[in-house]
Design a protein around this nucleic acid. Sequence first.
DNA 1: GGCTCTATGTCAATCGGTTGACATGTTTAA
DNA 2: TTAAACATGTCAACCGATTGACATAGAGCC
Lengths: 332, 332
Amino acid sequence: MATLKDVAREAGLSVGTVSRVLNNRGYISEETRQNVNRAMKKLNYQPNEMARSLSKQRSSMIGVIVPTISHPYFSKLIESMERAAHQEEYDLLLFVSQGRVDREEEYVRACISNRVAGLILCTGSVRTARLKNLGFPVVAYERLLNEADAGVECDNYEGGILAAQELIRCGCRNLLCISGIGEVSMPADVRRDGFMDACARHEGIRTQFFCCSEERITDLRYKSQLDECMDLYPDVDGVFASSDVIAAELLGVLSSRGKRVPEDVKIVGYDDVFVSELTTPDLTTIHQPVQEMARTCIDIIRRASENEAFPARTVLRVNLVRRGSTRTAQDE
Amino acid sequence: MATLKDVAREAGLSVGTVSRVLNNRGYISEETRQNVNRAMKKLNYQPNEMARSLSKQRSSMIGVIVPTISHPYFSKLIESMERAAHQEEYDLLLFVSQGRVDREEEYVRACISNRVAGLILCTGSVRTARLKNLGFPVVAYERLLNEADAGVECDNYEGGILAAQELIRCGCRNLLCISGIGEVSMPADVRRDGFMDACARHEGIRTQFFCCSEERITDLRYKSQLDECMDLYPDVDGVFASSDVIAAELLGVLSSRGKRVPEDVKIVGYDDVFVSELTTPDLTTIHQPVQEMARTCIDIIRRASENEAFPARTVLRVNLVRRGSTRTAQDE
DNA sequence: GGCTCTATGTCAATCGGTTGACATGTTTAA
DNA sequence: TTAAACATGTCAACCGATTGACATAGAGCC
């Protein structure tokens, strides 16, 4: 495997000059630059990132910890992160914690060992005291973490409002909000607040609330809980589900009870992942700007690395995507 | 950030001895080991993987290139890879190529630069000549790559047979096989062969074949193609879809045509990802042992790193999971 | 002619580990 | 008793870059 020294010899230059070309430092003539590039190509030179990171005291990798990627929301997120990272010349170190605190702490340690350029936390259970003075910036994604250096969220409150308005627009009067609540309070919790507040502003709207246990989020199986829920509230005519996956499962539960969507019950999901277009009918949902959120996370880390200023908190706009599950006669 | 030298000083030992403890080399007394561990804990020492990799000429990261992770099959795969990798003390470097050759080559270069312990290729478009003498083992996952050092697949032919048998068992006589074909020939192509061969062994079975273009696999949108397909073959009573996502979309297409599943049409999917339990009815499917396949890939890399022998080709068994989409009256 | 800018070279330290050679003791077992 | 096994130390080279100090020398300008 060719080294810088080999390239220098091949180009008839010193390592110092070649390193200057690679890192764009000091004065280099166009001729020399070409010469170096030619030599690198000829030797099929690939810089050793380990050596580079060691001397720079910082690698070009970004660590991301997520609870799962089986959930389509997180797979979409990771895909966006990967793209954004590589656009900024970073590589992505992926960690899946399954929501287990021990793993999360292990993964934070792995990030330290790898001297990552930054860490994006998409999971809330890490003991926050351990996030101080890590030597790299920590970005909290849709989590409330005081210890993080920055936070990126979408406007969950607004999302709740949009969902409520849509159901009310469709003539629903007997609303149900299904959401998951973990042990940690999360930005997503305020979706419900937005929903409830918007409902309260209208006359004659009944609202119920059902809490799906999210401890088994990695299972993606809520069906039995949703069945119980429908036993409790058999006469709802509009449901706001806090994720498209829950909404999709609800479709199955309703279908087995002979309820038709959207004729008998209207549904609004959340996230706008591919599942919402896979179901029959497809799902009206609140679109999260996942790509933009991912880009923001990466950009914060880039800025921090270059000692540029960056926002402590970024809240991005959501919007409603109307599909079959809230279609009414007059929409045709 | 504490270094090995700091730990040695704290423990009153030499760096050599501490390094021995870390790498389990030579003779170390239990007392010294404890002493070192205490010192490491006290200083909150995290070994610098960059330095370690540099001197070992090999990092403890495994690179994985996939075409997408939005597709539930790949997100399940990556989740399994991540788990298997960390169980063997590797970190995972994730690359999503979107099926673009230029990105794949860029990612292979990134793996070289990071001196990965191994590379798992879940995508077939890389120009194979570039995979020789990379300095680390390359494992082809569900791909035919002569240049790879090892291949891991599931028994796709058997999967096709199982699907055919199930549809025939349900009394279907007019079968359709929907599969995707890319430019590169892949192990998954033989699913069709298994299906067709099994059908040929039965009297009075008609078989059709429809080829879904997979160029837009990252889109996960096959609906319009499937609609055409149903125009072409309106009277099929049993369908084998080469992925659960296609099967799920087909459910929607059939529903909009007033066809009921499983009463009018029976469906068998492939993969056994969560989507198959999300639909109504849920999908009978061919289960791929993704976890075991992932573990096999990681194990091959571990063996290669330790100069142990490893199999050049591993083919894992699949099995049928019966659910609602092929349920008949007598199954009740 | 002196000054500054451009372009490159030499040299050595540094990043934080790993590893091997070699030395020096202390136990333990044959 | 004596060799082998155990336990640790010292020292230095090495992995492949980055970086800064300092030197050299030609080009362009006042």
